[in-house]
Design a protein around this nucleic acid. Structure first.
Lengths: 336, 336
DNA sequence: GCGCCAAAAGCAAACGATTGCAATTTTTTC
DNA sequence: GAAAAAATTGCAATCGTTTGCTTTTGGCGC
């Protein structure tokens, strides 16, 4: 063929080669608008032959959208290795899949919340069509304020009645209660909770845990402030045991913390589960490989990701939406 | 002030309010071109007051770039939970930081390589300025072909002399050798390697492992084909022990596999490290919390991420570049 | 007070697509 | 076979910026 008129970079080039106008090419390639079938086929073929694809940026500019959704990880409490948390990783993977499926790009960003307007600033850059935030950290107030004005915003995390923003999350209270009942069944009565209750999710787990306990035990639960990084939580757990505490049942706010507790316990020759039952939260993939394999409260991350994206798309379509809680499930293994 | 002439969406709006032309506003906000200091200050102030930020999409369109870098995770071998691998997570986190710092967005995508042109197709969409691929999987040929024509492409993974693409990666052979020497020092002589040697990185680890062994041991190393997901590798390890194999030293291709091995060993009452030394690879954050804490070959992920981004930027600036190998480091804990 | 020059600001054409409307061609109808 | 209706395609404005070039402004020397 004598079509070789240089590289095909734009719809204009293709139009020239095909001998039609740019509008025709546009319509042929986007499958929108009325167009002769034969013409459409011909142009699509030509495009394929020259390996031409529409420039997404230009398309988005024209359509007044970006085609991307931001996934933000606010590192409010823990500036450290938040992102290495296996839970986030799994969530991110599923989100990537869900978003890709719906034709959105996933823009990843960790943010160190400073001041009150990190979120507004981010949104104002207009780089994305919507925002998913994983974990509200200590930024509840900021989220509330932004959600007032900005629709396409969904948060993974604990829900509370007074929040004005949309959340998807595990029913942390129910999860905590599951853990409590399990430990009670195992005959444990000297209990401790490991976690940072400044994080709303963890606070809810703690609350649910307490609420499922008989009244006379509630007051006697040790509340140990453990951070989420492996290093930090291990240190806290080690100190705790060294100080002579010997609970027989521990509920940890996350699997990572639970594994830290088990590691620290092992160092003091406290046998799990003989002398101490440990229950985690999350059921990260590695939980089953822990030694002993971890009893934990499972969060359905895949479904969580699905719901987050689904809700966000509803928001983008300006449909009605409501926060969702996912029922957790107790996975009994050998650490309890 | 009587500036309130509706919302400020574009440079045009701001120009109207400021009583100047759009070019002036553009120059004021991008700090390029000659402009009166006072004017620039005034316009910047006005922009701040109205919360105006340049539309990045339009800017990028005009500048012929996208401002985004893709991070691709090809799931060639293991269609399963690749993304939940803690190693990827950590890498991704550091990449996010490095790219953000240089003003790039990070576009995340997992790809299931099908056929030969998934990468070309992706690049042709023109959504990004450059591509970072984490793990070459079994796509070495595809990468080679694409790298011929497409510059801004950097791969995390094993390097081989005949690759035409640019890699950053741990010196896997050296890492394997470290593991071998360590096991020898511990007096182990019935050795096994757990990993999928179809993955080039793992093959290199295995090779390095063998090469550091005395000639008479080399032939006797069990090569066990273990997948990377926790479930799969645990199953393989369990079968292996149940079948009666009793090595006294195991080198696992990843920490996840190592933890699976330890878990499976525990089920058969094989004591680690008394009867069996286990060495992993990666040093993921959870490795220190394993029970017993994992001896492993550490990859410097942060530096890896830094180098990947650095090399990519060099490529974008059309500077000279060469593949880099990072020296691994043995971290001795209690599993060996 | 005039001309010259540099500095400052504006004009208008891109970047690569979409789309309402108009123009053209084809089909239908009588 | 002509007019009306329907189908197909083209024209040109538009999305929000950037930037080469031109125009305006104001300061300066003489």
């Amino acid at each position: 063929m004598a079509d070789d008129e240089g590289p095909v970079r734009s719809i204009t080039d293709l139009a020239r080669i095909a001998g039609v106008s740019v509008s025709t090419v546009s319509r042929a390639l986007t499958a929108k608008g009325a167009l002769n079938k034969e013409t459409r086929r011909r142009i699509q073929e030509l495009a394929a032959k020259h390996g031409f694809q529409l420039n997404v940026a230009a398309q988005n500019l024209r359509l007044g959208r970006t085609g991307a959704i931001a996934v933000l990880l606010p590192l409010g409490h823990e500036r450290g290795q938040h992102l290495s948390d296996p839970f986030f990783m799994a969530m991110l993977g599923f989100l990537a899949d869900e978003l890709t499926e719906r034709g959105y790009d996933l823009l990843l960003s960790r943010v160190l919340p400073d001041g009150d307007d990190w979120l507004d600033n981010f949104i104002r850059t207009g780089r994305v069509d919507g925002v998913i935030i994983i974990g509200q950290s200590d930024q509840s107030a900021v989220l509330d304020r932004t959600a007032e004005r900005y629709g396409p915003l969904v948060i993974w995390g604990a829900h509370a009645a007074h929040y004005r923003y949309l959340t998807v999350g595990t029913d942390n209270q129910a999860g905590g209660a599951l853990a409590a009942r399990h430990l009670l069944e195992k005959g444990r009565d000297r209990l401790a909770f490991f976690g940072n209750v400044a994080v709303p999710e963890f606070a809810a787990r703690y609350e649910g845990f307490l609420s499922a306990l008989p009244a006379d035990m509630r007051g006697k639960v040790d509340l140990v402030h453990a951070h989420v990084t492996p290093e930090a939580s291990h240190r806290v757990a080690a100190d705790y045991f060294v100080a002579g505490h010997r609970p027989d049942g521990i509920f940890a706010a996350s699997d990572v913390t639970a594994m830290s507790v088990i590691a620290a316990a092992a160092e003091q020759d406290i046998r799990v589960p003989d002398q101490l039952s440990v229950v985690g939260f999350d059921d990260v993939p590695l939980a089953q490989l822990a030694n002993p394999p971890l009893t934990t409260v499972r969060q359905d991350i895949r479904q969580g990701a699905h719901l987050l994206v689904d809700l966000l798309c509803r928001r983008l379509a300006e449909e009605d939406t409501a926060s969702v809680q996912i029922a957790p499930e107790l996975v009994v293994r050998e650490s309890s």
